[in-house]
Every structure is written in structure tokens, then in C-alpha cells.
């Protein structure tokens, strides 16, 4: 099988608690309005869109933090669309996620070593300490960092811990949700280069959610552009940048302020 994910007719709606009547159920808003796409094995897929485009919701559906309302998500041929938590558990090792805000995604009461080791223990890995050490090596952090707390690290270092936790499980697929948007350009470059290297060395498949097409161009082989819960463009990266088809893609590209005072910006 060449594809790791196959998504067909994906719809997802969430309850809108702000409009919940006093009695009865809250109305549902449709976030994803019928998505069809596949993620080939070994691809680095960029998912781009503005706020409210549904890109994070799509990501959370892929790793089944959210349950779709209809349609299907197949991971390695298994239909995971409506699997219960118990049935998902053995699969969870194989699709991992790196979160946007490393400060909130790393439990502040646990040390870095414990944070990376916990998923390993849950999935019954042996030799946990050595695996934690190797994961830290992979992301370029000194092994001594295992004894530190998240708040003792810089933003870039925390994000590396998030990456180490994900790769320690030796997953086949990783979802990265806006993982560089809170970082300074230098840390951003470091994390992107690191991620690119890991994808190559570990043979990972990666879905990279971002609002920033510049970053996507640097890392991804294929791009999905989302607009208001629908896919407006799904192309090879080079083709998309050379000749954007959808009006929204062009608008996104035109809006990016290049670091160049001579760029016309109308």
C-alpha cells in the first residue's frame, strides 16, 4: 500500500456552546465540509489555511482526538473513523502528534525524561531509559535535559521535547500542528531543519499544519489549502507555488510580506 491515510467525504461538526439554549442541545457548526484526500507514505504534507479554515480540526480528526460526524478516515487500511478509545489504543503508537504550544502540551509538573518516557511505558516498550536518551539525541538536546522541568527550557527547546516524545514511539505518521508559529525565526529554522532531517532519517510520514506558506514551501512535498472547511487546492508544492490555481491560494501568497522592501505589495 502506498498511502498511509485515505480520507473520504470527511465531515465534522462541533457543538457551539456559545449558542446553547438554556434547555436542550447546543446547535452544531459544521467545521469540515466533505474532505477527500490521501497522504502517500513518506510524504510531507502541508495543510495550510487561515483561522476558521478547519486545519487544526482536520489534524485532530486524523489522530482521532476528535470523532468525525460522517465520511471515513482509513489509517494503513484500518477504518479508524468511529473506533472507540480501547480499540484505538494499540494504533495510537503509530500516529503521533506534536502540538502548537509546547508550554501547554508538556505537563508542567513532570520532568522532561518522564514526559518522553510515559508513552513508552504505556505501550510496553522495554529499555525505556535508553530510548529516552536516544530520542533526546535525535532532537539535539543533551541527555541531561531529562532531569529538567519544561519551564526551565526555552521555547525552541520545549518544542524539541515535544518532537522527542513523538518520535520515541517510532510512529509511522506524525502530525505537527503549527509547531513553529510561537518561535523566533532562528528557533523556527532550527526546528524546521530538525524535522526535515528526522523525516528523511527515520522514514516518517508527516502532516504539517501551518498558516505560513513560506514555512510550508521549505518543508513540504505536497500542500492542501483549506478555506472554510473545504479543500480549495491539493497539489505538489513546486506546482502550487509556480502556478496557484485557487483564488484563495493566490490571495494567501500575495499577503505574505517578503523580507524585501522592493516587493510590490498591493
Amino acid at each position: 500500500m502506498t498511502e498511509i491515510y485515505r480520507v473520504e467525504g470527511l465531515h465534522l461538526s462541533l457543538a457551539d456552546m456559545t449558542r446553547k439554549p438554556l434547555l436542550g442541545a447546543a446547535p452544531r457548526i459544521e467545521i469540515l465540509k466533505g474532505l477527500d484526500f490521501t497522504i502517500p507514505r513518506g510524504a510531507v504534507l502541508g495543510i495550510v489555511g487561515g483561522s476558521g479554515s478547519g486545519k487544526s480540526t482536520l489534524g485532530r480528526a486524523l489522530v482521532r482526538l476528535l470523532e468525525p460526524s460522517s465520511g471515513s478516515i482509513r489509517f494503513e487500511g484500518t477504518d479508524i473513523t468511529h473506533l472507540g478509545e480501547a480499540a484505538l489504543r494499540p494504533l495510537r503508537r503509530r500516529f503521533q502528534m506534536i502540538f502548537q504550544d509546547p508550554m501547554s502540551s508538556l505537563n508542567p509538573r513532570h520532568r522532561v525524561g518522564g514526559i518522553i518516557a510515559a508513552p513508552l511505558r504505556l505501550h510496553g516498550f522495554d529499555d525505556v531509559a535508553a530510548r529516552v536518551g536516544r530520542a533526546l539525541d535525535h532532537v539535539g538536546l543533551p541527555r541531561g535535559f531529562a532531569a529538567r522541568y519544561p519551564h526551565e527550557l526555552s521555547g525552541g527547546q520545549r518544542q524539541r521535547v515535544g518532537i522527542a516524545r513523538a518520535i520515541a514511539l517510532e510512529p509511522e505518521f506524525i502530525l505537527a500542528d503549527e509547531i513553529v508559529s510561537g518561535l523566533d525565526v532562528s528557533s523556527q529554522a532550527q526546528v524546521l531543519n530538525l524535522l526535515g532531517g528526522l523525516v528523511r532519517d527515520l522514514g516518517l510520514t508527516l502532516a504539517f499544519i501551518s498558516h505560513d506558506l513560506s514555512v510550508i514551501r521549505r518543508l513540504c512535498s505536497r500542500v492542501i489549502v483549506l478555506y472554510q472547511g473545504r479543500i480549495v487546492e491539493d497539489r505538489e508544492t513546486a506546482a502550487l507555488f509556480a502556478d496557484p490555481q485557487a483564488a484563495y491560494t493566490r490571495e494567501l501568497l500575495d499577503a505574505i510580506p517578503l523580507p524585501d522592501p522592493d516587493q510590490p505589495w498591493t
Binding site: L192, D212, L253
Partner: peptide, 19 residues
């Protein structure tokens, strides 16, 4: 170094270099 670390989508050869 800051400029070298800033992404620029129009230039695919521009490799991001951390400071």
C-alpha cells in the same frame, strides 16, 4: 543571520539557517 533565518517562499534555494 536574522535575514538568513527568515523564510522567503519566492526563493526555493534559500535554505533556512538558524543564527
Amino acid at each position: 543571520a536574522l535575514l538568513a533565518a527568515t523564510p522567503k517562499y519566492t526563493d526555493p534555494t534559500h535554505s533556512l539557517t538558524p543564527v
